[in-house]
């Protein structure tokens, strides 16, 4: 959007942001509520799944990634690959039976 966007388009954008805001609030309450319930080993993955959904909503709608230019995706994909490598390599080393001896 720019300053030449129609008032209707700007209002539509605001309404969308407010809906996402409402969903984020509900998911925040849900995160806390679920963490109070003992799901055993499932508490962690469920909590992280809700956080990922919330982060995706922020990225998609607040940061407009849902309608962004290709170049930005290319940059972010590169970041994501390195991030996963950074997360995975230490854990891989950690799981190495030789290194553990």
């Amino acid at each position: 959007m720019d300053i030449n966007s129609s008032p209707e388009a700007i209002q539509k954008g605001i309404r969308k942001a407010l809906v996402v805001f409402g969903v984020l609030l509900v998911l925040t309450v849900l995160t806390v509520a679920i963490s109070r319930v003992d799901l055993g080993t499932m508490n962690l993955p469920v909590g992280l799944a809700i956080a990922t959904i919330k982060a995706s909503l922020v990225g998609a709608y607040f940061m407009h990634l849902i309608s962004e230019k290709q170049l930005i995706f290319s940059v972010l994909i590169l970041s994501a690959v390195f991030f996963l490598a950074m997360l995975g390599l230490p854990l891989w080393t950690n799981a190495d039976p030789i290194a553990l001896n």
Binding site: I50, A51, V58, G59, M63
Partner: peptide, 22 residues
């Protein structure tokens, strides 16, 4: 600056559960 701020929000969305809840 809004994009930066949303990123700060996004990081907190993960910090909150991993330290306080899980």
């Amino acid at each position: 600056v809004g994009l930066y701020w949303h990123f700060v929000d996004l990081v907190w969305i993960f910090l909150f559960p991993i330290y306080y809840l899980l």
